[in-house]
Every structure is written in structure tokens, then in C-alpha cells.
């Protein structure tokens, strides 16, 4: 059951093939690639985002494509600089959240008994305690900055993943090959890392994507409240300053509209990628698609009752 490097490579190639075949996944992957490119090289292509380059609250023009902020900075430069920080925090938190969730979930599901009861209680409690108010209370006590933000987002975001991974672990434990490994006297660590976790690769991947969407949204929300470090440039602080500078009441839509659009595009792209993966990995949906294509090819409509297409004389 252990995966060799060659299967990992073909696995990756297969994923790439699958992404290209599914329309949703392709759209998601393209959107994501564009933003990663902007985050990677964008900051070198635009000017200093902190520089005061013109009259405050100028609408978009040829010299400032997205206008200027209430302080007179270039909105585009700030947007691009914010993309890098926000995506870094988003993906970092997304990964950490899944790591923590997987660790707790596997431990609870594999060890069972009291450990399971205790850990399950813990994540169930964290699931029902509303995240944003808790995040605000914790963040308010800590020095503001990306680390605080990341910490708070992990604390409020890990529970759901732990719950799902625990359920999966319980299901996997009952499988024959795990039972065989236990009988063969393999160590728990080896069983978990070699037998159980590899079966959850696609689940964990989906969780990373989902958690990143959560992390970006929650991060922007907290920073909008003023709980981030308002002197660093991120998507959230951009919106914070837009609100602070009364962008709405002065009609300066360009100071908040592009940022929100970027947040939504990244979230949309990630979600599309995820639902594309779901369709790729869900055999039922795949078969149903082949069935529809087969019927359409013969000029028949899919019907509720089993369709009759006379192929055989």
C-alpha cells in the first residue's frame, strides 16, 4: 500500500490530466495561476505601494490605473503588494490548519477510547464556539502582526478538519489491510503514516483548498476590523483604510472594489478547483457524465426511467 516515487509522479500527472479535462477545475487552476504569478513577480512591476504619489482619492486614470487612496498612494501598487502577503498568510494558514486537524483527527480516530472522547469533545466545542468573536478576543490581547493573525486563524479553524479526518480514520481502521498491519506488529506511527494517511490524500488536498479559502476570508475580515497590523499592506488593511477614509461617503469605489474582487476571484478559483476535483474523484458523477454523453450522441434525452436506445438489431 505504500506509494513509491513513480506512482506519486504518475499520480501528479493524472491530476494534471484530470484538471485539464474538467471545465471547472481548469477555470479554477487558471485563476489561481494568475494570482500566484501576480504575488510572485507583481511587486517588482509596480511602484512602491507606500509612496505618496498624487492627490488623495483620485479616480482611475492613465497614470494611476486604479486611482489613489485616501492618503494619496497608488491603489494598484497596494493591491499587488497586498496579494503577496494575503496569499502567503492564506496558504500558510490553510496548510497549518489541515496539519493540526489531521494530527488531532488521526490521533483521536486511531487511538480511540478516552483520548478519542476527550479530543472529540475538544473539537466539537471549538466547532460551536463562534469563530470571529473568539478570534477578536484573542487577537486583541496579542501584539498585532501576521503571526498573531495566523495563530488566531488556526485556533478558530482547525476543528472542522479534525472532525472529518477522525471520521475517515475510524472508517480506515476497520479496513482489512490496516487490521493486517496491526496483527503483523507494525508500529502505530508506521500504520498511521504508511497505511491510513495515504488513503486520505485527496481529502486532505480538498481540505487545504477549503481551509485556504476560509483563511483568506477570515483574515480579510479581522484586518478590516483593525485587528491586523494596519501598517502592513494586505487586502484586509487596504479595506480597513478604505472604510477609515470614508471611501463610501466620498464615492471612492476604486479604493475598495478591486480588493474585494480579488478576494472573491481567489476564493472562487479555489472552490472551482475543489468541486472540479470532487467531480473527477467521484466515480458516480463520472459515470453519469459518460451516460449523458452516450445518450446525447444517439440523439436521446436523459430520462428518469431507464432509457431505451436500440443499438442491437
Amino acid at each position: 500500500m505504500s506509494s513509491t516515487p513513480s506512482t506519486a509522479v504518475t499520480g501528479f500527472a493524472a491530476w494534471w490530466q484530470a484538471i485539464r479535462r474538467d471545465r471547472k477545475a481548469t477555470i479554477g487552476a487558471i485563476i489561481l495561476a494568475v494570482f500566484l504569478l501576480v504575488a510572485g513577480v507583481g511587486p517588482w512591476l509596480v511602484g512602491d505601494p507606500d509612496a505618496l504619489v498624487g492627490i488623495p482619492l483620485q479616480p482611475p486614470s492613465t497614470s494611476h490605473w486604479l486611482g489613489t487612496t485616501g492618503q494619496g498612494q497608488d491603489v494598484l501598487a497596494q493591491l499587488v503588494a497586498g496579494t503577496r502577503v494575503s496569499l502567503a498568510i492564506g496558504f500558510g494558514v490553510g496548510l497549518t490548519v489541515v496539519l493540526v486537524g489531521a494530527l488531532v483527527g488521526v490521533t483521536a480516530g486511531y487511538l480511540g477510547g478516552r483520548v478519542d472522547a476527550l479530543l472529540s469533545l475538544l473539537f466539537n466545542v471549538f466547532l460551536v464556539i463562534p469563530g470571529l468573536p473568539l478570534a477578536i478576543v484573542i487577537a486583541a490581547y496579542l501584539p498585532s502582526g501576521p503571526l498573531t493573525l495566523g495563530f488566531v486563524l488556526v485556533v478558530t479553524g482547525w476543528a472542522w478538519n479534525a472532525r472529518v479526518v477522525r471520521a475517515q480514520t475510524l472508517a480506515q481502521r476497520k479496513r482489512d489491510f490496516v487490521a493486517a498491519a496491526v496483527v503483523a506488529g507494525e508500529s502505530s506511527f508506521r500504520i498511521v503514516t504508511r497505511e491510513i494517511l495515504p488513503t486520505m490524500t485527496s481529502l486532505l488536498l480538498a481540505q487545504v483548498i477549503g481551509s485556504t479559502v476560509y483563511a483568506i476570508g477570515a483574515q480579510v475580515g479581522l484586518e478590516f476590523l483593525g485587528l491586523g497590523d494596519v501598517s502592513t499592506i494586505t487586502w484586509g488593511t487596504n479595506l480597513y483604510w478604505a472604510q477609515n477614509d470614508s471611501a463610501l461617503l466620498t464615492g471612492a469605489w476604486w479604493t475598495f472594489a478591486p480588493t474585494g474582487l480579488c478576494v472573491a476571484l481567489v476564493g472562487f478559483g479555489l472552490t472551482m478547483l475543489n468541486s472540479g476535483f470532487d467531480e473527477i474523484t467521484n466515480p458516480r458523477l463520472q459515470l453519469e457524465r459518460a451516460w449523458r454523453a452516450h445518450l446525447r450522441l444517439r440523439g436521446e434525452e436523459p430520462t428518469r426511467s431507464t432509457p431505451v436506445v436500440m443499438d442491437v438489431g
Binding site: 476570508g217 479595506l239 474585494g260 472573491a264 481567489v266 476564493g267
Partner: peptide, 10 residues
């Protein structure tokens, strides 16, 4: 995918 408060602003 839009932040709630951003939709609210728009």
C-alpha cells in the same frame, strides 16, 4: 467568495 462586508459596502 466575496467578503460579506465587502458586498455590504458595494
Amino acid at each position: 467568495a466575496f467578503p460579506y462586508f465587502w458586498l455590504a459596502m458595494v
